[in-house]
Design a protein around this nucleic acid. Sequence first.
DNA 1: CGGGGTGATTTTGTATACAATAGAAGTGCA
DNA 2: TGCACTTCTATTGTATACAAAATCACCCCG
Lengths: 216, 216
Amino acid sequence: MMPASETAYQKIRAFILQGEAVPGMQLTEEKLSEISGVSRTSVRDAVRRLENEMLVVRSASKRLSVADWSEGEVDEMFTLRAMLEAHAAARAARRIDDDALEILRGINKELKDAVNQSPPDIACFLEANRRFHDLILECAQSPRLTKLMPALVEQPVVRRTAHQYSKIQLNQSAVDHDELIAAFAAKDADWAKSVMTSHIRRAFHSFSITASPDRS
Amino acid sequence: MMPASETAYQKIRAFILQGEAVPGMQLTEEKLSEISGVSRTSVRDAVRRLENEMLVVRSASKRLSVADWSEGEVDEMFTLRAMLEAHAAARAARRIDDDALEILRGINKELKDAVNQSPPDIACFLEANRRFHDLILECAQSPRLTKLMPALVEQPVVRRTAHQYSKIQLNQSAVDHDELIAAFAAKDADWAKSVMTSHIRRAFHSFSITASPDRS
DNA sequence: CGGGGTGATTTTGTATACAATAGAAGTGCA
DNA sequence: TGCACTTCTATTGTATACAAAATCACCCCG
C-alpha cells in the first residue's frame, strides 16, 4: 500500500496536469482531500511538494491555487533548466560507466520506436524521454542538483507541446539523444554540455512557436 | 504571534547551525518537538523545509538526521550557487532601478563598517552580506530562481569560514560588491555575471584553504 | 447611495490520539 | 554458540477535532 501522502501527491498532480484544473483556480485543502481520498493532513504534505514544484502557489493569505505562469516565467524556467541539465550532462560525461551508457541506448531505442508509430505514441515518447533525462541526472551524482531539478520539470509545458510536435521535431530529440550518448561515450564533458543546451533550447523554441496563437 | 511551524523552523535551524548538532546525528520528531516547543504536526512542517534546504536528510527508513556533506558536495554546491547567483546578477543588471541601486550602496556601506571594526564584526558582515545578495535576487525578478536558491544557501559553510576570514578577504568581498554595483549602474549584464562568478568562487577557495587541516 | 464595521462562514493552522512500520532486543532451537 | 524468529519499543504516518485567521455578506450609519 502506498503512503497516503504519496497517493495525494500523485492524484493532485494528475488533476492539475491532465487539464482538469484551470490555471489560477482556487484549491482548498478540503477539496483536494476529497479528490485524493485521504485526510487533510496528508494532503498538506502533498501540497508542500507541489508548492516546491511550483505547480500550486500560495497567496498572501495562504490560500492555494493552480499555478499560472507568465510567458516570461516559462522562458526563465527553460533557461534555468538548460543551465542545470547542461551542467548535469557535463558531470555525467565524466562519471558515466558502460552499463549506464548501454541502458541509455536502450531507452533511446524505445523512444525512437514510439516516434515511428503512426501516429507517434506521445505517451511512450514522454515516458522514455523522462527516463533518459532522469538517468543522466543520476549519473551526474549530485544530490543537490537532484533536489533542484523537480522545481524545473515543466511537465505541463512538455505535455501541452508534445501533442503538437511534428514527427520531424520528435525525431530531432532522438538525434540529440544519440549525440549526447556519443559525447558520453567519448567522456567529453564540454560536448555533452553543448548538446544538452541545444537540446533544451530547441525544445523551448518549438514550444514558443506551437504554443503561440494560430497564425492562420 | 509567529506561526508554530515558523517557530519550529527557526529553532531547529538555529539548533543545527549554531553547532549544537553534530553532522549525522539522529533527530526524532519528538525531540525536535521538545526543542521547538510545538507539536509534532508543526515540526513535520518545518522539517519539510529543512529537508529542501538539505540541512536535514531522511534515511531510507524515513528517519531524520543532521546533514553531513562530503567535500565533493560542498564543491558542487558552490558551483551551482555560482551559476545561479551569476544568472541572477545578469538578470538584475537588466532590471534594477536607481532606488534599489541606492539601497545596495547603503548595505555595502554597512558591510564595510562591519569589516573595519577591530576586530571585524562578523555577525554584522554576514547579515549585510545576506541582505546584499537577497536584494539582487529580488531585483532579478525570477520566482523560480527565488525558489531554488534556499537549497544553496550554505549558511553552515559561510559561518564556519567567515570567522576565519582575514580582514583582507573580508575587504575583498566589499570590493567585489562595489564592482557589482558599478556593473548594475552600467546595466551591463555580462559584467555583473562575471563579477558574481568570481565573487562566489573566491569565497569557495577561501573556504577550501581555511577549512583544510592545518599545514603547520 | 456609499463606506465601514460586525457577524457568519469558509479556510487554514495546530494539537492530540491512534495506527502502521521499522529497529532492537530477547528467546529458543539446532 | 550462532542464527532465525518473535516480541517489544521507538519512530514515523494518518485521521480527527478544535482553534485561529481570513473572506464574505450583510446591515447600519452617514
